[in-house]
Design a protein around this nucleic acid. Structure first.
Length: 446
DNA sequence: AAAGGAACCAACCGCGGTGCA
DNA sequence: TTGCACCGCGGTTGGTTCCTT
């Protein structure tokens, strides 16, 4: 059943607002507040529908609206949030005081989107665009990939190739693929599916049979579900905790993350300590089956903010003891270090003592307790950043077989002025670099 | 100076979520 | 449970301004 448009009543004015109308609306709202928008026009003496009044007020007349050019910082904020959230204009607007969702949307469509396109980035995915030439090369690569998979390559090389396929399938914000990338995805998915029963993904391989749970008949737009282990091993617990002991999985938005570890696995079922990573700005809950009688879902929520912003663990349960700033940490982008050092523990904990690394969704640690045991077990790549004097810093920088293999990185890195840690700038990802990889040079010989 | 196109942005449209009877 | 009203959001439109020829 359709709803009739709110402004279809005859005689109601549409179109641009006059200064007199603005004045009437402003005066009324200043005096009485807006209350019911539907009732407002009559009460304010306006021949407009309530919806039109609401839009005029919220997008133009509101006193806290900042007008004028967007600053570089604001542009950066929009880009960063858009990379995380997509077209969630109202959510983005909550992080730009004085700017409306409409203004941000317009600015995006007229300025930023074009700029990204000019720079060769897909404005929806914030990844390098796949033009016809790159697409052709990738399709050629894909066409040869299956053959190469059947050769006897090391597990590292095979994992890299699989990871490349996963990258082709990755669409972070939406499923609206451009024609060319859709072709790539179809081809990549077909290939990934065809490999399901192949030697590479069979039972007698290093990565195990369940590493990539490919289902039949899933649309190409759906990603294979892969888990990303993050480790909490720190200098404080490294004697007790092995790299694989306190991993958890960062899954995509809305999926459950579990804190079951090898240390607690006898007491804790995978579902006992789960939480959800929601998209930017949404509350994540730590309510679990173990604490659900004492803790309501909203009691121990925290908010996942975008890259570089502070996340807070203050909750209704600890708010008397913990100030908003006491238990914050930062979620950095893929591969970067997150720190748990807080004002409460800063005497005992060095910034690097409680850091961990967020890996991207879709990478699998060969030694993760979440995965079937591997035989032989490939080694974890552990970056030992310890200096001789300070032997406390151990960061698992990559669980991937080849450390140089990284997901494409968004080129607009947020200003990390507020960072607790100095993050080493990763080299920007270039598709051309990928194509120079020996793997693709091998392909070129075919 | 005039015409046409591009850029900009306020406003509209329609859908989805929520609350209430 | 259902239907309705309301609100908010994101996509789109169309009028205005700016720029180029």
């Amino acid at each position: 059943m359709g709803r009739s448009p709110c402004c279809d009543e005859s005689g109601l004015k549409k179109g641009p607002w006059t200064p007199e109308e603005d004045q009437k609306l402003t005066n009324y709202i200043n005096k009485h507040g807006h209350g019911s928008w539907r009732a407002l026009p009559k009460l304010a003496g306006l021949n407009r529908c309530g919806k039109s009044c609401r839009l005029r007020w919220s997008n133009y007349l509101r006193p806290d609206i900042k007008r004028g050019k967007f600053s570089q910082e604001e542009e950066q904020t929009i880009l960063n949030f858009h990379a995380v959230l997509g077209n969630k204009w109202s959510t983005i607007a909550t992080h730009l005081p004085g700017r409306t969702d409409n203004e941000i949307k317009n600015y995006w469509n007229t300025h930023l989107k074009k700029r990204l396109i000019q720079m060769g980035y897909d404005p929806m995915t914030h990844r390098p665009r796949t033009d016809i030439f790159n697409s052709l090369q990738h399709l050629i690569a894909l066409a040869n990939l299956k053959e190469l998979m059947e050769h006897n390559h090391s597990w590292q090389e095979q994992a890299m190739r699989l990871h490349y396929l996963q990258n082709l399938l990755q669409q972070p914000h939406n499923n609206n693929l451009s024609t060319l990338s859709a072709i790539q995805n179809v081809e990549a998915y077909k290939l990934l599916s065809s490999l399901k029963d192949s030697q590479f993904l069979g039972t007698n391989n290093h990565l195990g049979n369940n590493t990539v749970p490919i289902q039949d008949s899933i649309p190409f737009s759906h990603l294979p579900e892969l888990h990303t282990p993050c480790s909490f091993q720190t200098s404080l617990n490294k004697d007790k905790v092995g790299p694989q002991d306190s991993e958890f999985m960062v899954l995509s938005n809305g999926e459950v993350c579990s804190f079951q570890t090898s240390l607690n696995k006898d007491k804790v079922q995978p579902q006992d300590t789960e939480f959800k990573v929601m998209s930017h700005g949404e509350v994540c809950s730590f309510q679990t089956p173990l604490n659900k009688d004492k803790v309501r879902p909203q009691d121990i929520g925290f908010t996942v903010l975008s890259h570089g912003e502070v996340c807070n663990f203050q909750t209704p349960l600890n708010k008397d003891k913990v100030g908003p700033q006491d238990t914050m940490f930062k979620i950095m982008s893929h591969g970067e270090v997150c720190s748990y050092q807080t004002p409460l523990n800063k005497d005992k904990v060095q910034p690097q003592d409680t850091e961990f690394t967020i890996l991207s969704h879709g990478e699998a640690s060969p030694t993760s307790p979440w995965l079937p045991s591997l035989s032989p077990s490939p080694p974890l790549v552990i970056n030992d950043q310890r200096s001789k004097e300070n032997s406390s810093e151990v960061v698992i920088s990559s669980c991937l077989p080849n450390e140089s293999w990284k997901l494409p990185d968004y080129p607009f890195r947020p200003d990390s002025e507020q960072s607790l840690n100095k993050i080493e700038e990763a080299p920007p990802f270039m598709w051309s670099d990928l194509l120079e990889d020996s793997f693709f040079q091998d392909i070129d010989k075919f």
